[in-house]
Design a protein around this nucleic acid. Structure first.
Lengths: 355, 355
DNA sequence: GTGAAAGCGCTAACAC
DNA sequence: GTGTTAGCGCTTTCAC
């Protein structure tokens, strides 16, 4: 069933049928009625969205690109909060949200064609590595876009936090409590899926801006307190979930030279560390303090509640949404937004047992 | 930049350029190279998705319709788990997931045009009221569709649980513990936003199938134990979150004739009830037992941990995704799927203080 | 208020 | 391997 078919049926031009749906004021009420009647009779349900998009050169859809398989996003409380904020703006603006699939084979390489084939008016790009082909494909289309957290890309509006300063502040807290033996649990530095202790070189070459900056912040804090960074083990996980945190804890919390404080780049990792420690008779915070990052809802209700860096993910989504919408409307809005963070001190940190 | 433009540049037909992208085997490697080179030079990034969709009569996108504003979905752990399961299937099948906006004014009436204007190959319809115009608009398009939880609609494949049986089982548990004074906290029975005690008539006319069935299950259990249903207050909330649960508790747990057991249609509501009780010196489960429904992650870590009906939301998403994909591929799959539930007994229920 | 013409960018079907 | 033809369903522009 098409517009034209209805037009024939009613004995008017296709244009008039189109107007019946899109500009009610352009035709008489009576004719409009007749048209809808015919449409109902023939089972026509309004102008085809694809034809319409082709003609109008817009889709009223925003594409979301996520650095991991899509299904991970729904397992990540930070991403979910972000999407909540984002969707409230896009829905308000009557835009659909297209979660772009980019399954990617076993290699973890995501298919850049996904971005090329998405019928969207703009992109929200969430936390991609600097070199991701998917990112380049998306940006290459020269549609309006907003990049979240990373990477900082020439010409692409950006929303994020001051990762370095936030990390620094979070490391200064255990430092003030008197800690001197640290370990760090990081999520991926680069998208190659490596797991284990990352040396200095790898830390500095990290393809993920966020990882790079947070490590830099920790380092600045520790060195500022006179502690040599080279002695701080940085355990890199290929992702960010509790299981990986547990594995990292297993590697880091072995009896010999156990750290008294663990800094984690995410709450998921931190929570995993706490779980592993607790399960192995190492009590938090008495034996080891743990600091997270994100302030995921679970952080507040965990046992012990997690000391962490709070960032407002929903707000981030809101801001990103607003920036994109104003680009789509060709208004000018801010080309970058920075969100505040604050350290939330809870029960997972305390002074070290023996100083 | 268009296909045709590239074709001119290279001196071949548009078809050949199309083939370069879609059927590499249909042309010589050398020509393909030349085409991509020209494309890169001219800043062409592959066939336009909308033109392609129009011609191929498919979009490779699945639309998701949610009964509330989209942003609520991301605040609802059950919906998020569902989406996680769904997205893992759609991504695997290389389909995008379009979250359809249907903002709806203050009335809460969602705009049915949203479903008509979504450029999708099929719909996943999540928990809509029987009469929702949005639902009718979506189903009216006669695209492949799967309906989740409700409503049970002629001809639309369905995925859900046996709500009545599950509710019945969950009510039998406090009954076996010896409880005799019950109250029920329900989410919406109908989409009119009403809040307060719902009488029998309203219970039975409920537009939301799930609410109707769960109440029916509770009733069957209580009446089976010889308790008169008419004396059980059913407090209806216009949605399902903790704040509403707290309000319901305020109304239900007043000192005179306080129930010893509260049955809630969702964990969010149950958790709200527990919070309110605890805050008002009523201890759970000593003074009042609370049973939830859903087994949201938070239920297990709440204080006290919540006794609830477990249903596997991610599995539901998976199943829905598979059913839709097989429809899209015109394979025949199951036309309905029912998921198992089980009662998870945790710390929020115990025998009543005085029998 | 209504309509005619044109074309958005692409690919199926079929030739050669 | 490569090209031709045709048309997917719609709406912009402009005329009446």
């Amino acid at each position: 069933m098409t517009l034209t078919r209805i037009a024939e049926e009613v004995g008017v031009s296709a244009m008039t049928v189109s107007n019946a749906y899109n500009r009610p004021d352009q035709l008489s009420e009576a004719l409009r009625e007749r048209i809808f009647e015919a449409a109902t009779k023939l089972g026509y349900h309004g102008p085809d969205p694809v034809g319409r998009s082709l003609r109008r050169q817009r889709t009223d859809v925003v594409g979301v690109l996520y650095s991991n398989p899509l299904s991970y996003a729904f397992g990540d409380a930070a991403a979910v909060s972000f999407l909540r904020g984002l969707s409230s703006v896009t829905e308000e603006a009557d835009l659909g949200l297209l979660l772009v699939p980019a399954a990617g084979g076993a290699s973890g390489e995501r298919d850049p064609r996904a971005a090329a084939q998405a019928a969207v008016d703009g992109f929200v790009i969430y936390s991609m590595s600097d070199e991701e082909p998917l990112l380049r494909a998306a940006l290459g289309r020269r549609l309006p876009a907003v990049v979240i957290d990373q990477p900082l890309t020439e010409g692409a509006p950006f929303v994020g936090i001051d990762d370095e300063a936030a990390a620094r502040t979070s490391a200064e807290h255990p430092l003030h409590l008197g800690h001197e033996r640290f370990a760090v649990v990081s999520f991926a530095l680069s998208p190659d899926g490596r797991e284990g202790i990352a040396d200095l070189d790898r830390q500095e070459r990290a393809a993920f801006r966020v990882s790079r900056l947070r490590l830099r912040g920790y380092r600045a804090a520790l060195e500022g307190a006179g502690l040599p960074w080279s002695e701080v083990p940085v355990y890199e996980c290929p992702g960010s979930d509790k299981e990986l945190g547990r594995r990292a804890a297993g590697a880091l919390l072995s009896p010999e030279h156990r750290p008294t404080a663990v800094l984690a780049l995410s709450d998921q990792l931190a929570l995993g560390v706490v779980e592993w420690a607790t399960a192995h008779g190492i009590s938090v915070p008495e034996d080891v303090s743990v600091v997270g990052f994100d302030d995921v809802p679970e952080a507040a209700v965990a046992d012990p509640p997690l000391t962490t860096v709070h960032q407002d993910h929903a707000e981030k989504g809101l801001l990103a949404g607003r920036m994109l919408v104003s680009q789509l409307r060709e208004e000018d809005g801010p080309s970058a937004g920075s969100l505040a963070t604050r350290l939330v001190v809870r029960g997972s940190t305390s002074p070290p047992r023996e100083r």
